[in-house]
């Protein structure tokens, strides 16, 4: 084991892992964090805490993560390179680890243009690949990015994202290979709706033997309505929503669409369980956390292993 991360232990045991996420509130209401986390608590191995998701200001990922940690749960600290330079990242990691947060996710982050401060200067001092390498060096060599020794290095289990659907498609396995080379331990993918394309990408991953070097958690998002599906198709960068997903939701009355969305999510999990190299699922139920336990149970991923 490289770390004390619960997620690492679950993955090492060979069981399918389950993670989910919690977006911190847009204000000083800690109870919003703890309420959301409480909904997920028995059904996941780790809870991603997003970092100013979609470039909207929110309670910081680290502090919301501490609130979750204090409930005895397992937050996954997300960190975007948009908002912090390497000094700020490293100090945040030291702080988070001091509170027992031992799992993190290294991301570039959505451009500020999408958020509520489009006039802000993005930092982008280092990119997500370089961030992975920095965190790995902090853990395995006990060195800061600048080369100085850390007095008590943070032992982070290191995650990153992958979007098999963004183009150029032929680069998507190669980019994963770069993240592996940089030292990533696990990957959470973009929400998967185009299962065929995802399987094609996974085949590329397996062909290169990358599945032996990194754990892939397949990203699952239940659709609440056909409106949400259309919005994601048209407005969210890097999303691939096939027309039959929209047609299927259109085909049921509005009140039944949430249920249909959950059914589709469960079916996707069932199918992807069979795919070589998929070592778990990352369930992103956006502002719909209360449905996660149901999805986990229906997909036969409950109870979670005790590690």
């Amino acid at each position: 084991m490289k770390t004390d991360s619960r997620l690492e232990k679950v993955l090492a045991s060979g069981e399918l892992a389950v993670t989910s996420e919690c977006g911190p509130p847009r204000g000083c209401r800690p109870e919003k964090v703890t309420e959301k986390a409480a909904l997920l608590k028995d059904h996941v191995d780790g809870i991603n805490v997003t970092d100013n998701q979609t470039a909207m200001v929110r309670m910081s990922s680290c502090t919301a993560g501490i609130l979750i940690k204090q409930m005895g749960l397992d937050p996954i600290l997300q960190m975007v390179s948009r908002d912090r330079n390497r000094l700020a990242m490293q100090s945040e990691i030291l702080g988070a680890y001091s509170f027992g947060i031992n799992t993190m996710l290294c991301l570039s982050g959505d451009h500020a243009k999408f958020g509520d401060h489009p006039m802000a200067q993005g930092v982008f001092d280092i990119d997500s690949v370089q961030m992975i390498k920095m965190v790995q060096q902090m853990r395995d060599k006990g060195l800061f990015q600048g080369g100085a020794k850390i007095d008590g290095p943070p032992k982070m289990f290191i995650g990153a994202a992958a979007n098999p659907f963004a183009d150029p498609f032929e680069l998507r396995v190669m980019r994963l290979a770069k993240k592996v080379k940089a030292g990533v331990d696990f990957i959470q993918t973009q929400c998967i709706f185009n299962l065929d394309k995802f399987e094609e990408w996974m085949k590329g991953v397996v062909d290169r033997g990358l599945d032996e070097q990194v754990h892939i958690l397949a990203g699952i998002t239940p659709m609440k309505s056909v409106g949400m599906a259309r919005y994601m198709k048209n407005k969210v960068p890097g999303m691939d929503i096939p027309d039959d997903v929209i047609k299927r939701l259109e085909g049921v009355p509005k009140e039944q669409q949430p249920e249909e969305g959950i059914k589709m999510a469960v079916e996707a999990i069932e199918r992807l369980k069979q795919v070589k190299g998929v070592h778990g699922f990352h369930i992103m139920a956006i502002e719909w956390e209360e449905k996660v336990p149901q999805i986990v149970e229906k997909a036969g991923l409950y109870p979670r292993p005790k590690v």
Binding site: S81, R82, S108, G109, D110, H111, G122, F124, D127, S128, V129, Q130, A161, A162, N163, A166, D167, P168, L171, R175, K178, Q190, P237, G238
Partner: peptide, 16 residues
């Protein structure tokens, strides 16, 4: 690159 990434592309590319 809008995020001056040195190891791009990010996951947001759409139709190139």
């Amino acid at each position: 690159c809008s995020k001056h990434l040195f190891n791009g592309p990010c996951g947001g590319t759409s139709n190139g």
